[in-house]
């Protein structure tokens, strides 16, 4: 599953955004950050601070939720602001994929797992599904899902949350996107499964050179996975830097509060070492 690393110049994604919802004018206020090719950038912050909004902005899907975004999104050197819906459709799922926040409600209750995978595949692929199936089964195996036909025939109500989450991850990486936006992908999982998912991301990142925008309020997992982290507070990036640096020497009082709020299983200084 290896792919040659593309030697593009400049960041893979570069964002400078403001956004609003009809009843919430300043959800994002001049949020700026870059994601380098192959980099895992963490986006941390309290819930409600605008993380998912950023994810939707990048895919230009904020309108679906009734919001409006202003500002610039450059992806692979292209300004997405002027991209047509058609062009965006070609990017979504293939270049930039997303793992949504809530696993069960993100699967279509009326469709079998196989059909949902097929839909994700069909969005950017021509040809016979049957021919592509072995690869998809392999993909399922790589996310530790049962890769038999029986599993494909299940409907979402017949699988567990953890399985759902992994189905969603598998769906997101079908087309080997350059950038994966993972919106709190571990929030619904128990600790062991969480660990497995994090390993999976690390592997995908390594093997496919896939950049990941890892959205989380879980500092522990961030520390375990990410190269860099950006801290978001009420719609503003208050701190951005190497993950190590942020955990060891938080500059902003908000970051410090976030870190202090961690359960003190270990010393904050020790967390960085797991990375």
């Amino acid at each position: 599953m290896l792919e040659t690393v593309r030697n593009d110049f400049g960041p893979l994604l570069s964002v400078s955004l403001s956004a609003s919802y009809p009843d919430r004018p300043d959800v994002l206020q001049g949020v700026q950050f870059d994601v380098q090719p192959g980099e895992i950038l963490a986006l941390v912050g309290q819930s409600g601070c605008g993380k998912s909004t950023i994810a939707l902005c990048i895919l230009k899907l904020l309108g679906v939720k009734g919001g409006k975004a202003r500002g610039a999104i450059r992806f692979q050197g292209r300004d997405l602001e002027w991209a047509t819906e058609r062009e965006m459709r070609a990017i979504r799922g293939r270049e930039i994929a997303m793992v949504p926040q809530s696993p069960l409600s993100s699967l279509n209750p009326a469709l079998r797992i196989g059909a949902q995978l097929k839909e994700a595949w069909r969005a950017h692929a021509e040809g016979e599904w049957e021919a592509a199936k072995p690869r998809i089964l392999q993909l399922l195996e790589s996310v530790d899902l049962p890769c038999d036909e029986g599993f494909l025939r299940r409907v979402p109500s017949q699988i567990s949350v953890g399985q759902a989450q992994r189905v969603l991850i598998a769906m997101a990486v079908i087309h080997r996107p350059r950038l994966l936006i993972a919106d709190e992908p571990t929030s619904a999982l128990d600790l062991i499964t969480q660990r497995e998912v994090l390993d999976l991301f690390a592997r995908l990142n390594r093997e496919l050179n896939m950049a990941i925008l890892y959205i989380s309020h879980d500092l522990l997992s961030v520390a375990a996975l990410c190269h860099r982290a950006a801290v978001l507070e009420r719609g503003r990036i208050v701190e951005c830097g190497g993950a190590e640096q942020i955990f060891e020497r938080p500059a902003h009082p908000y970051t410090r509060r976030l870190i202090d709020a961690l359960p003190r299983v270990r010393q904050p200084s020790g967390i960085g070492q797991t990375f």
């Binding site: 459709r89 979504r92 949504p100 279509n108 469709l111 839909e119 969603l168």
Partner: peptide, 22 residues
């Protein structure tokens, strides 16, 4: 407005297909 429709859009599903399949 459902989450799965949003995800379908985010995976690049065209609108007519979203309607038909989801």
């Amino acid at each position: 407005r459902s989450e799965f429709a949003l995800l379908a859009r985010a995976s690049g599903c065209p609108k007519p297909r979203l309607l038909w399949k989801h």
